[in-house]
């Protein structure tokens, strides 16, 4: 038993004591053990270079990491893109200023109420545009055509037309802007008209009119535009504008024969009956008319 322990110790590369060494040397198999141990070296494994082998394996292990990196970066880009798309969507949903347009066709009238309860009545073939956002802070409305405003009290209220700007503070007034023709009638309160860098103030019952660039002032005793009650009233207005208004109200085409369209006309016509209306505008001017479908011809008798 002691012998075996000594052999174990020797095999474990431990230093033997003098006694143990002596005992070991007297053992039966000592010479054989030594020879076996010595000759084992002849069976040594081939040389193995760790750095060399590591270099070889790196060719296989490198791409692995790259793949995992590229997939994660694509994912990252997708995430960023998704946030951008979401943001753009939110912007258009919540922050974009929506413009509201209201318009009328020939022989049509319409009323609309603005966010602050201001009433707007549109005559035929007219349109208004305004932005709903911040309306109470910034009351601006674009007008093309003819409209009557009953403005709620509040901050300044601008009506912007291609001819000029009308600025008021809680009042009732009508604006008519047609080709070569711009007219503002104040029915209540005070209206300020900005026309070609000049400011005019209109008290209640005043009319501000520009015909072909010529400014004129007059007065009215009406409290509302007549067209609201389906009647067009004119006061010393060139005849051509009466005819154009007539065309808008009845959707007809008027041609004239040798008639001076610059003659002034005072009178009115109704919007409900074309025969009566035609008589209203021809008899005072000593004219006669012929009607053929949507075509009306005016002539001297």
């Amino acid at each position: 038993m002691k012998e075996e322990e000594i052999i174990h110790k020797w095999l474990d590369h431990e230093e033997l004591t003098k006694e143990e060494l002596e005992a070991f040397q007297h053992m039966e198999g000592y010479a054989s053990f030594m020879k076996i141990s010595e000759n084992a070296r002849t069976f040594k494994s081939p040389t193995y270079s760790i750095p060399e082998e590591l270099e070889k394996i790196k060719a296989y292990t490198k791409p692995h990491k790259k793949v995992s990196f590229s997939t994660s970066s694509i994912r990252m880009i997708m995430r960023i893109a998704a946030i951008f798309i979401l943001g753009i969507g939110m912007y258009f949903t919540f922050f974009n200023e929506s413009t509201i347009t209201k318009q009328t066709l020939i022989s049509e009238k319409a009323s609309t109420t603005l966010p602050d309860q201001t009433m707007v009545t549109l005559n035929s073939l007219s349109s208004v545009r305004y932005k709903e956002k911040d309306w109470d802070e910034n009351r601006k409305i674009e007008l093309d055509g003819e409209a009557y405003f009953k403005v709620a009290k509040g901050k300044k209220f601008d009506v912007i037309t291609s001819a000029g700007i009308v600025r008021v503070l809680g009042t009732q007034f009508a604006v008519k802007q047609r080709k070569d023709y711009f007219e503002v009638i104040c029915y209540e309160g005070l209206v300020r008209v900005l026309y070609k860098n000049k400011t005019s103030e209109l008290p209640a019952g005043s009319i501000f009119r520009v015909v072909k660039g010529e400014v004129s002032n007059s007065t009215t005793s009406f409290t509302k535009p007549s067209w609201i009650k389906n009647r067009s009233v004119f006061n010393s207005t060139p005849y051509r504008y009466i005819l154009r208004e007539f065309e808008r109200q009845y959707n007809v085409k008027i041609t004239t024969k040798n008639i001076d369209q610059d003659k002034l006309f005072t009178g009115n016509f109704v919007h409900s009956d074309i025969q009566t209306a035609l008589q209203s505008i021809t008899i005072p001017m000593r004219l006669e008319y012929k009607m053929n479908d949507n075509h009306v011809t005016l002539y001297h008798p």
Binding site: S45, P46, Y48, L54, I57
Partner: peptide
């Protein structure tokens, strides 16, 4: 890991199965 185990692994395979197996 490679530096720590590669040589031992190589020897283990070689001594176990001999030279006709390519231990490397």
């Amino acid at each position: 890991l490679f530096q720590k185990h590669a040589k031992n692994l190589h020897d283990f395979i070689y001594y176990k199965y001999g030279e006709h197996v390519d231990a490397k």
